[in-house]
Amino acid sequence: MGAAGDEKAAAAAGGAAAEGEAAVDSKDLQQQSKALDKLTDHVEDRQLDSSRVQSAMAALASSKEADWNAMRLREKELAAVKINPTDVEIIANELELDKKIAERTLREHKGDAVAAVRFLLQ
Score class of each variant (00 low, 15 high):
Gly5Lys: 01
Glu7Val: 06
Ala11Trp: 13
Gly14Arg: 07
Gly15Asn: 13
Gly15Cys: 08
Ala17Cys: 11
Ala17Asn: 13
Gly20Ala: 15
Glu21Ser: 13
Ala22Arg: 11
Ala22Tyr: 12
Ala23Glu: 15
Ser26Gly: 08
Leu29Val: 01
Leu29Asn: 09
Leu29Tyr: 11
Gln30Tyr: 03
Gln30Arg: 00
Gln31Ile: 02
Gln32Gly: 08
Ala35Asn: 01
Leu36Met: 04
Leu36Arg: 01
Lys38Met: 03
Asp41Ser: 15
His42Gln: 09
Asp45Gln: 07
Asp45Glu: 15
Arg46Ile: 11
Leu48Pro: 14
Asp49Ile: 05
Ser50His: 09
Ser51Asn: 14
Gln54Leu: 12
Leu60Tyr: 13
Ser62Phe: 06
Ser62Ile: 01
Ser63Trp: 06
Ala70Met: 10
Arg74Ala: 14
Arg74Thr: 04
Lys76Glu: 13
Lys76Trp: 01
Lys76Ser: 09
Leu78Thr: 03
Ala80His: 09
Pro85Trp: 00
Pro85Leu: 04
Glu89Leu: 03
Ala92Asn: 05
Glu94Trp: 02
Glu96Asp: 15
Glu96Pro: 04
Asp98Lys: 09
Lys100Trp: 14
Ala102Pro: 13
Arg104Cys: 05
Thr105Gln: 08
Leu106Gly: 00
Lys110Glu: 15
Ala113Glu: 14
Val114Asn: 14
Ala115Leu: 10
Val117Arg: 01
Arg118His: 10
Phe119Pro: 00
